[in-house]
C-alpha cells in the first residue's frame, strides 16, 4: 500500500506546479454556463410555459451547474488516451516489470488529481455557485445527503472504469484515438451532459438510461437537485454499484487477455 501512497504524493506535487493556468482554466470551464442561461431563457420565453421536461427555468440552469460538480468527480481527461499511447508505444513495459498493478496505479493517480482539483477548484466553484444562487433549488434534504455524496464518489469510480475499458481497446486496435472521439461524443450526450435526459421522448429516455453513462451524470445530478426520494436514490446507488462491478470485471478480463497479445514495441 505504501507504494501507491507515494504515487499519490508525487502526483499531488506535480499538479500544484501550474497554478495560474489551473485557475484560469477552471473559470473558463464555466463559460458555457453563460450560454446555457441565455439559451434556456430564450427557449422558455419562446415556449411560453413554466416547465420543460419536468424542470422549470431555474432548475434547468441548476441542472447544468450541478452537472459541473458531477463531472468534477466523473470526468477522466486523458485517461483512455494515456493507456492507449502506453500500449502503442511500448511504454507499458516499464509498468509490467514493476511489482505494481497498472490499473490500481492509475486509480491512485486519478485520486490525487481529483484531490488537488477539489482543493483548487473549491474557490472558483463556490464563487460561480454564489453568483448563480438565484437559480439553485437549495440544499438536498437531510437524509439524502449521504446518498448524494456516495453517488458522486461512485461516479468517480464509474468514470474511471468506463475510460479504462475504452483505453484497453488499444490492445486490439492500433489506432484508437479516433474511436475515443466517437466515444466522447456519445458519452457527452448519453450521460446527460448536453441536456437533461428528461427532455427526450419517454421511450428514448428509457432506452438511454439503460446504459451506464446516465449513472455517471444524469442520475446523480437529479438526486442532488432533490428530484428523487430516498428509495429512488437508493436504486440509483445500486445501479451505479452494479455498473462499476460489471465494468471492473470487463477491465480485469480485458487486461489479462490484452497482456497476452501485448508485444512491447520500441526499444
Amino acid at each position: 500500500m505504501r507504494k501507491y501512497w507515494q504515487v499519490f504524493r508525487i502526483s499531488l506535487a506535480d499538479r500544484f506546479v501550474y497554478r495560474t493556468d489551473f485557475l484560469i482554466g477552471t473559470f473558463l470551464r464555466f463559460a458555457p454556463i453563460v450560454t446555457t442561461i441565455a439559451l434556456w431563457r430564450a427557449v422558455y420565453a419562446g415556449a411560453g410555459r413554466e416547465e420543460i421536461g419536468d424542470l422549470h427555468y431555474g432548475e434547468m440552469v441548476s441542472y447544468y451547474l450541478i452537472v459541473m460538480i458531477s463531472r468534477a468527480f466523473g470526468s477522466m481527461p486523458g485517461l483512455a488516451s494515456t493507456l492507449a499511447s502506453d500500449i502503442r508505444d511500448g511504454n507499458l513495459r516499464k509498468f509490467i516489470v514493476q511489482p505494481l498493478n497498472y490499473v490500481i496505479y492509475h486509480l491512485h493517480l486519478r485520486m490525487a488529481h481529483k484531490s488537488v482539483y477539489f482543493v483548487m477548484a473549491a474557490l472558483p466553484y463556490a464563487l460561480v455557485f454564489y453568483w448563480c444562487r438565484s437559480f439553485l433549488p437549495g440544499w438536498p434534504a437531510g437524509e439524502l445527503w449521504p446518498l448524494c455524496i456516495l453517488s458522486l464518489v461512485l461516479s468517480f469510480f464509474l468514470g474511471f472504469m468506463i475510460n479504462m475499458a475504452i483505453g484497453l481497446l488499444s490492445f486490439w486496435f492500433m489506432e484508437v484515438t479516433s474511436f475515443m472521439f466517437i466515444f466522447m461524443v456519445s458519452q457527452y450526450f448519453l450521460s446527460g451532459h448536453q441536456f437533461p435526459l428528461t427532455l427526450l421522448p419517454d421511450w428514448l429516455e428509457r432506452s438511454v438510461t439503460l446504459l451506464p453513462f446516465a449513472y455517471e451524470t444524469f442520475f446523480p445530478v437529479m438526486m442532488l437537485m432533490g428530484k428523487m426520494n430516498a428509495a429512488e436514490a437508493g436504486q440509483v446507488i445500486a445501479g451505479q454499484c452494479l455498473w462499476i462491478a460489471i465494468l471492473s470485471g470487463v477491465v480485469a478480463f480485458g487486461w489479462r487477455r490484452g497482456l497476452r497479445r501485448y508485444a512491447a514495441f520500441g526499444g
Binding site: A42, V43, G46, A47, S178, F189, Q194
Partner: peptide, 27 residues
C-alpha cells in the same frame, strides 16, 4: 473514423436542436 465521428457530433447537435424545438416554435 474521424469523418464518422464528426457526422455523429453533428447528428447529436441536431438531436439537441430538435429536442428544444419539441417545446418551442422559436428561439
Amino acid at each position: 473514423v474521424t469523418v464518422v465521428s464528426e457526422i455523429l457530433w453533428l447528428g447529436m447537435m441536431l438531436v439537441f436542436v430538435q429536442v428544444i424545438f419539441r417545446f418551442t416554435r422559436q428561439i
